[in-house]
């Protein structure tokens, strides 16, 4: 079981995701450089936070053209789990793997703080270890995290149970309080909060582990029990 973490020029939470998977959860993780045409046989992909390509034009707009994204699309179409965190979520919407868009926060300011997030749907490889309605404390850190989509899309997301995470106290004006969504096949999730920043007791919360360990468990072919020590309940 190996997690691939894509590194775009300007990614800056790549190492944090790597550390959470490899040091906090003790699973294999490796970096995948943006101009790589192959994912090198990984079992799950994380698109980390940061400012890919400087977020020029729009957040995530240039990253979608990078060679690695073609491979990520194929991986997703084949059913492989792909988790986009923060800038990774923005890349997924720009690449058309998820509907809607992320725009400037309602108050026009970057916001970095820990917010309450509710698990709306545990029916995904990323949330399966959580309970429906469970509250997590997760950090957000973004200037463009306000999720928008047209009314029909929002209704579809709701009716298909594809809103996976919702803010308890909405920090950015996202419609319907959306913090994370799934694609129709439920194997691609984008979320603005940072689970990798809540993966170590020293960082004040380990609530993010429920997301990351769900991903790992879902991606493990073997049914061997997880070597997870500090799971949040």
């Amino acid at each position: 079981m190996k997690v691939g973490i894509v590194v775009f020029p300007g990614s800056n939470c790549d190492h944090d995701a790597w550390y959470a998977v490899s040091a906090n959860l003790r699973h294999d993780a490796e970096f995948i450089w943006h101009d790589s045409a192959s994912l090198g046989g990984v079992d799950a992909v994380i698109l980390p936070g940061g400012f890919s390509y400087g977020d020029y034009l729009r957040c995530g707009a240039i990253a979608k053209f990078s060679p690695v994204m073609r491979a990520v699309k194929e991986f997703a179409q084949a059913g492989g789990p792909v988790l986009g965190i923060c800038n990774g979520f923005q890349v997924l919407t720009e690449a058309g793997l998820l509907p809607g868009a992320l725009v400037r926060n309602a108050n026009l300011k970057f916001v970095c703080r820990t917010v309450g997030v509710e698990i709306v749907s545990p029916d995904s490889p990323f949330t399966r270890k959580a309970r429906r309605g469970q509250h997590l404390q997760l950090p957000v850190a973004h200037g463009e995290g306000c999720y928008i989509a047209d009314e029909a899309t929002l209704r579809q997301l709701e009716s298909e149970d594809r809103i996976s995470l919702r803010y308890v106290d909405n920090p950015n004006g996202s419609l319907r309080g959306i913090a994370g969504i799934l694609n129709a096949q439920r194997n691609v999730m984008g979320m603005m909060p940072h689970p990798e920043r809540a993966a170590d007791p020293l960082m004040g919360s380990t609530d993010g582990l429920v997301i990351l360990s769900s991903l790992i468990e879902s991606s493990s072919n073997s049914k061997a029990p997880l070597k997870v020590q500090a799971l949040a309940s």
Binding site: D16, C112, R197
Partner: peptide, 27 residues
């Protein structure tokens, strides 16, 4: 002020803004 600053990236911030001093762990 400090909510506009990303004070957590690199996941080393043991004590951040609001404390008498900041603490950064060396992994």
């Amino acid at each position: 002020v400090w909510q506009q600053y990303d004070h957590q990236v690199r996941t080393n911030t043991i004590a951040g803004p609001g404390f008498d001093a900041a603490i950064i762990r060396i992994k």
